[in-house]
Design a protein around this nucleic acid. Structure first.
Lengths: 247, 247
DNA sequence: AGACTTGTGTCTTATACAAGACCTGCTAGG
DNA sequence: CCTAGCAGGTCTTGTATAAGACACAAGTCT
């Protein structure tokens, strides 16, 4: 990739240079050239390699940093973000206690199976109906009590050979996906509504059926924007809240 | 303000220059020197006035733009953001229909009164107990049906003389606050939980008492980060969802 | 352990040109 | 003469470059 992007007389791509740089760098990250934890070349090196100025590289890196794809630290350098339990939780787990503090959570896997996608799952994941998917049931304990029952459906084609043994899970799911399958979740969309405990959820949470629960449907996308997971969470909000910041 | 911020030999403030510029500009906006709709001086003019380079001004303006405090348009200039119903809704109203499309909503004011703050309201707004606050009850119709019952408590000290007549409200509340009281809402925090309709809410929404509803408590802050409103919304999610994007 | 060196990202300035929006004044056609 | 419309000029923000001072981290040498 030693052809300069910016030949002063003519530029093929009409988009701003820094956008093109951003795309090239993103490609190396999602393509696996630069796996999680990898240290990127320094800004002057990238600038020289791509034939642009350091300022242009900086602008591209700033965008990638805002998307949490890279970590930059003055003096240390820039690395591809490696999900750990804290960062994954911070970005994708919005439940807090009544005082707004984050909670300690323990995850128990109840079941794990691979089966054909149901229509609604296929639609959410952008798959054809009947394609194999992995289905996972989990219970989350918050501050010691079972509070969240989750049914997760994971894209079979994107996660071949996915399997979790029932029992305690010591890792956030997204950390596992990155480490064991090279799939990095970049963003998610959630839809919240008022729900009530069905029989299965009630049993899992030790609550009477019909008790009001917060119902959250999530679709999670990887950094290449492919739908990886659709999840239905039923949350007991007796002692917890789902926190949102608007601006 | 003609003292240059950056005297090459010594700088009093350790923060980056662009942060200081940002703060000065923010001060003029919240202080009323530059009211909503006001056209800012051009970047070269600001740079000359503040004794910094245009690049530094640009960086400060970029931050203010991301906070939606200013609008910039190439060729036209930069203006202080004027809230209108669309932008206010887009930023602070997260309810969508089942397909994810935004909904048309009509707001009916049920009651408006000024009375001493209850303890929880005073705590949420950072006021002393018993300070006067304005209390508002509203019903929102989504796509023609009453779906949201809202009880809003507004800071009395920040909004002297606030009053709304019961009846249809043709404006978003935050647009009214900006136009009639010069208070611009900059951000809000919400806490969601599973709720059930109390008698008053059930009556307002035409639902049986006890039906599961999405309960949303919001605290809204102005651009100077003072708590302006605490609001409790009860949402019927039969045909709508509360949408959240995570990244 | 402490001082030095090197490599890194951060901040600031300066310059140049590109592109969008607006105004002004000219001109062609009535 | 009047006016619609276009051409050009000018002001704005946007993009790109280059260069230097600075701050931070991590080795390396004494």
């Amino acid at each position: 990739m030693s052809t300069p992007l910016s030949s002063p007389p003519a530029r093929l791509d009409a988009r701003p240079l820094y956008r093109q740089v951003e795309e090239i760098l993103l490609g190396r990250i999602v393509g696996g050239d630069w796996p999680p934890g990898h240290a990127l070349p320094s800004e002057p090196e990238l600038a020289a390699e791509l034939g642009v100025s350091q300022g242009t590289v900086r602008k591209a890196l700033t965008v990638l940093e805002r998307r949490h794809l890279i970590d930059r630290r003055q003096g240390r350098g820039t690395t591809v973000t490696r999900h750990n339990s804290e960062t994954a939780r911070h970005h994708f787990f919005r439940v807090r206690d009544l005082s707004g503090r984050s909670v300690v959570s323990r995850i128990m896997v109840v079941s794990c199976a691979t089966r054909p996608a149901e229509p609604w799952e296929a639609a959410a994941l952008g798959l054809a109906e009947g394609v194999p998917v992995h289905h996972l049931r989990r219970v989350r304990q918050l501050d010691g009590s079972p509070r969240i029952f989750e049914r997760c459906t994971l894209s079979g084609p994107l996660l071949p050979g996915f399997r979790l043994e029932p029992g305690e899970l010591h890792q956030e799911l997204y950390v596992h996906l990155q480490q064991a399958h090279g799939v990095t979740i970049g963003r998610a969309e959630e839809e919240l509504s008022a729900g009530a405990a069905d029989a299965e959820t009630a049993a899992a949470l030790g609550k009477p059926a019909g008790v009001p629960l917060l119902r959250v449907q999530r679709i999670a996308y990887d950094v290449a924007d492919r739908a990886v997971e659709v999840r239905l969470s039923m949350i007991d909000t007796e002692r917890h809240r789902y926190a949102v910041k608007l601006d």
